[in-house]
Design a protein around this nucleic acid. Structure first.
Lengths: 209, 209
DNA sequence: TCGCGCATCGGTCTTGGGACCGATACGGCG
DNA sequence: CGCCGTATCGGTCCCAAGACCGATGCGCGA
């Protein structure tokens, strides 16, 4: 028997989840929570196998509640169930330790199947979220922005970050050593760096390499 | 009507997939392939909406075939269906452009549902694979090995990679400037680096930072 | 016991890096 | 039109960086 805690600020939602769960073979609700804080305390008291967690809740949101529950009770699996399919929600939930993420428009039968999967120790995401997670896995966000530098300076920066000396960069870009030095100096000023080593670090942090 | 190509080297598997697909409403098989190469040519000829692709096939494996199909026909969605739940398979398939990854022990009804999800443009993974992908998302692999240097040298290396000068490192480690220089020189030699910039690069590449 | 690797330290020497000064030329923009 | 930002270039100055030389002490295994 899989013991389930339902956390949602709307009583109507909680009631419908409870009906669904109690009517499913092998499942049983052991409590309800209307806030994130209540979910945490209820989890500590009843140590459910599974928590159906909403994201938007008063007092403490579902993400933070998930973080605490997962930290305190590794055996408890959290399945995020929310109305909004937002990346911040999904990634926040996953980083907080959630084992799954579904939308509230998921058909009841599918929800029950998913809860079985989660309770068995596996993980499951809404297909849209799965697609975006894969996207992010295959093409990690390569934010080259955030650095307020000119195009030429950016070119110099990547060459610096490749380990080239000023002379090598000068050859590579067909300009004089002086010019390279000027660009490097500008970069040092703009990026608040003391030495070219800091430039390399900045380039790596900005995923320019 | 969703048009499906079945690629698997075993005729028995192909036949059973074909029966399943043709019996499902809204689906229709448009071809079979026994090798990766055949899958590529068949996709080019019949441009199916969906390809059920096995990983292990003669001539060309399913990963490579997926890569080519996705590159040539962005409209064609590939669902990897394999016996073995191996990370190399999953990640290889995803990087190749596959939209989904399931195991052959997936129940027929579930497979059909999954094909619907995939065909609708979303993505879907076997729960075990989902769990590992999330794991990798939350805790990216931080391999710090590969560098044949002493423990002390490793300490110096990370400080160098943090942008500290030799003098700062000396203060930080409570040793003299000479000692730091010695360690840095050793690092330069051992790692085949010309300047400390190369050390920073090596440190980042080795994920020491 | 001797040798070896490691960590520690000091000295000298050369060079590239970087600060700071100057300049010219080009293009967009009010 | 003049102003400003960008890219280009030159020169001077200083110092950290790195090469290379030496040395000592410690622990560990042959």
């Amino acid at each position: 028997m899989i013991r389930v805690l339902v956390a949602d600020d709307q009583a109507l939602i909680r009631a419908s989840f409870r009906r669904l769960i109690d009517s499913a073979p092998g499942f049983q609700t052991v409590g309800e929570a209307a806030t994130g804080a209540q979910a945490v305390t209820a989890s500590a008291r009843d140590h459910p196998d599974l928590v159906l967690m909403d994201v938007r809740m008063p007092e403490m949101d579902g993400i933070e509640a998930t973080r605490r529950i997962c930290a305190d009770h590794p055996g408890t699996r959290v399945l995020m169930v929310t109305t909004f399919d937002l990346d911040e929600y999904v990634y926040g939930a996953l980083r907080a330790g959630a084992a799954g993420f579904l939308l509230k428009d998921t058909p009841p039968a599918e929800l029950i199947r998913s809860m079985n999967v989660i309770a068995s120790g596996e993980s499951l995401l809404a297909p849209t979220a799965t697609r975006r997670l894969i996207q992010r896995f295959v093409h990690p966000p390569s934010r080259a922005g955030g650095l307020d530098i000119t195009e030429r300076e950016r070119e110099v920066l990547v060459l610096v970050a490749r380990g080239m000396s000023n002379a090598e960069i000068a050859q590579s870009l067909y300009v004089s050593l002086s010019t390279v030095k000027t660009h490097v100096s500008s970069l040092l000023t703009k990026l608040g760096a003391r030495t070219r080593v800091h430039l390399v670090i900045a380039a790596y942090e900005a995923h320019l390499v």
